[in-house]
């Protein structure tokens, strides 16, 4: 599962960068310049990298059983300039927190918790 996260992170970084390049090209167009070759190269490259990004995101999302909102956020992050970097950071943080919580959580209905330890005593330990 950490492999899926790494693949998603790599693609998020690549697509985020490609999208920034595409944004620069579009800004040039809006300013009246028409870098035809740049547009013809950058636009489809982003388009197909985005497709690979979507596949890595789906792979991670299906394994980690994401909800709809998280899928939509990640899908949008691929075509809103700059958003990919922030969402990638947030997803990584969330996934690590959720995996460590799942590895530590007890099973359903652990009715007998045993003696309650002193919380203050625990804090004194390194």
């Amino acid at each position: 599962m950490t492999g899926a996260l790494t693949r998603y992170r790599v693609m998020a970084f690549i697509v985020g960068t490609a999208l920034l390049a595409l944004t620069v090209v579009v800004i040039f167009q809006l300013l009246g310049f028409h870098p035809k070759t740049a547009e013809a190269i950058v636009a489809p490259i982003h388009g197909y990298l985005y497709l690979i990004y979507l596949i890595t995101a789906a792979d991670l999302g299906v394994r980690a059983r994401w909800g709809i909102v998280r899928f939509l956020t990640v899908i949008c992050a691929g075509f809103v300039p700059g958003l990919a970097f922030y969402i990638e950071h947030r997803i990584t943080r969330q996934m690590r927190a959720e995996w460590s919580a799942e590895a530590h959580a007890g099973p359903k209905g652990n009715a007998e918790p045993g003696p309650a330890p002193e919380p203050s005593a625990g804090e004194t330990n390194p």
Binding site: N110, G114, P115, P117, P119, A121, G122, E123
Partner: peptide
């Protein structure tokens, strides 16, 4: 054993404290 799940959600240092308080 009973209570085995307790350590799951907590830091190990708490488990050490519980063992030494026994």
């Amino acid at each position: 054993p009973p209570g085995w799940a307790l350590t799951g959600g907590r830091e190990r240092s708490v488990a050490v404290a519980a063992a030494s308080a026994f």
